[in-house]
C-alpha cells in the first residue's frame, strides 16, 4: 500500500510540479499571482480535446497544435489583460486573474457543454505490476514527460540568451529595461511558457482522468505548491508540486479522501507560520 501511494503521489505530484513551474515562471517575470493557472491547465486539456477528438489530427500534430494554442493564449492574456494593468496594484491584477478563470470556465462550458470529455490517447495504457505495486504506463509517461519538460525549461533559463534575458527581467524589471532588454517581449514569453506548462499538465490530467472544467481544481494545486516550495524559486515550485501530490495521496489513502484539502492547506499554513518564504525560497525576497 505504501509503495502504491508513493507511486501515485509521485506521478500526480510531477504533473502538479509542472503546472506550478508555469505559475512560478509567470510570477517571477511579471509578479502576477495568477489565479487563472488552473484554468490555463483546463484550456490545454480542451485544446487537446479539440485537436485530437474533434479535428481528428494525428497525435504528434495535435500536440503541436495544442502547445501553439496554449502559448498563444498566454501571449493574448498578457497583451490584453496584464500589460495594460502594469503598475497597478497587485490586488487589481489578482482580481483580473480570478475574473479570467471564471470567464474561461464559462466560455468552455458554453462551447463544449458541461459534460466532461474523454481524451483518447495513443500513449501506452497498460500497467507494470511489480509484486503488489501497480504502475500504469500512462502515469509513468506523464511523470517522465513532466520531468523532461522541467529539465528542458531549467536548461533554457540557464543556458540560452533568451533565458538569460528572462532571468534578468525577473530579477529587476527596471534594470532590465535600462540594459536594453525588451521587457514586454520577455514578459509575454513568460506568459506563453506559463500557459504551455499548464497546458501540458492539463493534457496529462485529462488523459489520466477526464477533461472537464473541474480540472481547474487540480490545476490550482499549483498555488499551494509554489507557496510551499517558495514563491521566487523555480526548483521550489517543482518540489512543492511533488509534495502536494504526496500529501494528497497519502492523506486520502491513510486518513480519508475527504481529508486531502485539509492536509494540503494545513501543511501550507504550517509553512506560512514557520517558514513564510517557502522550503526553497529566498528569505529576503520570497516572503509571502
Amino acid at each position: 500500500m505504501f509503495a502504491q501511494v508513493l507511486f501515485s503521489g509521485f506521478a500526480l505530484g510531477s504533473i502538479y510540479g509542472l503546472v506550478a513551474l508555469g505559475f512560478a515562471v509567470v510570477f517571477k517575470a511579471t509578479q502576477v499571482f495568477n489565479f487563472a493557472q488552473g484554468a490555463l491547465a483546463v484550456c490545454g486539456a480542451y485544446f487537446a480535446v479539440t485537436a485530437i477528438s474533434i479535428l481528428g489530427l494525428p497525435f504528434p500534430l495535435a500536440i503541436l497544435a495544442m502547445l501553439a494554442a496554449s502559448a498563444l493564449l498566454g501571449v493574448i492574456i498578457h497583451m490584453t489583460l496584464i500589460q495594460p494593468l502594469s503598475g497597478r496594484s497587485m490586488l487589481a491584477i489578482i482580481m483580473v486573474t480570478i475574473a479570467l478563470s471564471i470567464v474561461i470556465r464559462a466560455v468552455i462550458e458554453i462551447i463544449y457543454g458541461p459534460q466532461g470529455r474523454v481524451l483518447s490517447t495513443p500513449l501506452p495504457t497498460g500497467v507494470f505490476i511489480v509484486g503488489d505495486l501497480r504502475m500504469p504506463k500512462l502515469h509513468l509517461t506523464a511523470a517522465a514527460t513532466s520531468w523532461v519538460c522541467m529539465a528542458a525549461f531549467g536548461a533554457f533559463f540557464r543556458f540560452t540568451r533568451v533565458g538569460l534575458l528572462m532571468r534578468a527581467t525577473a530579477d529587476r524589471h527596471e534594470a532590465a529595461m535600462a540594459a536594453g532588454v525588451n521587457v514586454n517581449l520577455m514578459n509575454r514569453l513568460a506568459w506563453a511558457i506559463g500557459s504551455v506548462l499548464a497546458g501540458i499538465g492539463g493534457l496529462f490530467l485529462g488523459q489520466l482522468q477526464i477533461v472537464s472544467t473541474e480540472l481547474e481544481t487540480i490545476g490550482l494545486l499549483a498555488l499551494p505548491a509554489v507557496v510551499i516550495g517558495g514563491l521566487q524559486s523555480i526548483p521550489g515550485a517543482i518540489v512543492g508540486g511533488l509534495l502536494v501530490g504526496m500529501i494528497e495521496q497519502f492523506s486520502s489513502s491513510y486518513i480519508s479522501p475527504k481529508s486531502t484539502d485539509i492536509a494540503i492547506y494545513g501543511f501550507l499554513l504550517l509553512i506560512l507560520l514557520f517558514r513564510p518564504w517557502g522550503l526553497l525560497g529566498d528569505q529576503e525576497t520570497g516572503r509571502v
Binding site: 540568451r161 538569460l164 534575458l165 532571468r167 534578468a168 530579477d171 529587476r172 527596471e174 534594470a175 532590465a176 535600462a178 540594459a179 536594453g180 532588454v181 529566498d282
Partner: peptide
C-alpha cells in the same frame, strides 16, 4: 540596479545580448 541574483558575468552578458 545590478541583477542581484545573477552572476557578474551573467549581468554583463545581459548588456552584451
Amino acid at each position: 540596479m545590478v541583477f542581484s541574483r545573477m552572476t557578474v558575468e551573467e549581468n554583463l552578458m545581459v548588456g552584451a545580448a
